[in-house]
Nucleic acid binder design. Sequence first.
DNA 1: CCAAAAGTGTTAACAGTACACCCATGC
DNA 2: GCATGGGTGTACTGTTAACACTTTTGG
Lengths: 230, 230
Amino acid sequence: MITTPRHAYAHARPAVAVDMVIIAMGEGGLELLLIKRGEPPHRGRWALPGGFVRVRDDGDQGEDLDAAAARELREETGLALRDVYLQQLRAFGRPGRDPRGRVISIAYFALVPGDRLVVRSGSDAADARWVGLERVGRLAFDHNEIVAFAVAELERRVQYDPRVAASLVPAAFTKGELRRVVEVLSGAAQDASNFNKRFARMLEDGLVVALGRQRTAAGPGRPAELFRFA
Amino acid sequence: MITTPRHAYAHARPAVAVDMVIIAMGEGGLELLLIKRGEPPHRGRWALPGGFVRVRDDGDQGEDLDAAAARELREETGLALRDVYLQQLRAFGRPGRDPRGRVISIAYFALVPGDRLVVRSGSDAADARWVGLERVGRLAFDHNEIVAFAVAELERRVQYDPRVAASLVPAAFTKGELRRVVEVLSGAAQDASNFNKRFARMLEDGLVVALGRQRTAAGPGRPAELFRFA
DNA sequence: CCAAAAGTGTTAACAGTACACCCATGC
DNA sequence: GCATGGGTGTACTGTTAACACTTTTGG
């Protein structure tokens, strides 16, 4: 229970946090970064990384919401903003979602280029790891609801925002790599030929640029052309 | 300046409000419900309707965010939820957006079936009226930014969510009325024949239902069939 | 009859789909 | 050679877009 002093004026205030849905493309599909809670409530349960927004009421009113999200992301993954698709999802504020007191969470989602990141355990986290989206069990608080909303948004946004697929792929990528990301996100197999036709339009529109280099062959098969997003 | 007592524990809390972007279809196009502020800050300036979320830290933690938005909507327009497309947009929380202290606003948008509503002036509003979206001047706080975001969302959501157009049209409507709404939202003229073909698919899919009645002719021209959304 | 609004039909262009085929590389 | 992944071509289909046309009403 968060103990809150009575306020001197009319309305009480909630605590405001950011919760991060950090998603990367792993071997078997999409993976979600979770922390194991080291403190109550829900000690020992997996949860989304996050933390309270730093605010004040005087001249400097504290950090922006986006800045708080960027700070949490940096603390957990060490990633800087420029590599990451970081967007606000929406606020979750159902009464009772946190037993300590009224907490309103601004959910963000971050799409990062790979899951091979140094994951740091924050102060209140006993452990941190990447978990396949299908293997996410029952999380702390209302975090399952937040993840479900984020995944639905992801599947929707990939349709009209090329930055989504761009953020889940390495800086230099092949058409095959991008195709596999789209296959995972859309949940449907993409015909290679038809995908290439869509890709050709993206090239014409200047959305992607050919690098003129080729991927050094890792196994059998013809080496692929490399591209980057503009 | 909101005077805030020091908190007994680590982090300070922001005030949390809901701001309502209430949009209706008027004669000349989309109209936005604005109130004239009767209190400082920004006294006398037009602003979005809104108010603080009622929260507590004990067993009953107060009202849900959606409930706060529905309450504000009811207070301003007298409309109940079932007639209205009421959806959260996102949180706006830039430091300095409210000179009184740190305030985080959860923006909602509400699409209502018509602009001929009894608009009530709330406690801190000197006046309230519908303003054409093109005629919205400089608003209080960061409300221009919120409106811009809402309009962009509106134009995007009308593409894939039929409830958007449905909410801006009367309960019983003609194909022509729906077509004019889509024309305003998309900003492009809709060919009547092609629009009818899309509408025919909506009928097949059971999204709209023919009422079997006709609009009593208001002027010259053939009377139109009436429909309703399912 | 005429203007205005509703409603129908026809055609060409475009985008999406399915599927067959060729190319370069490691083993 | 052959399996594997990259890359190309073609025919079919459904959707969209443009535009000409007919129908029903008020004046």
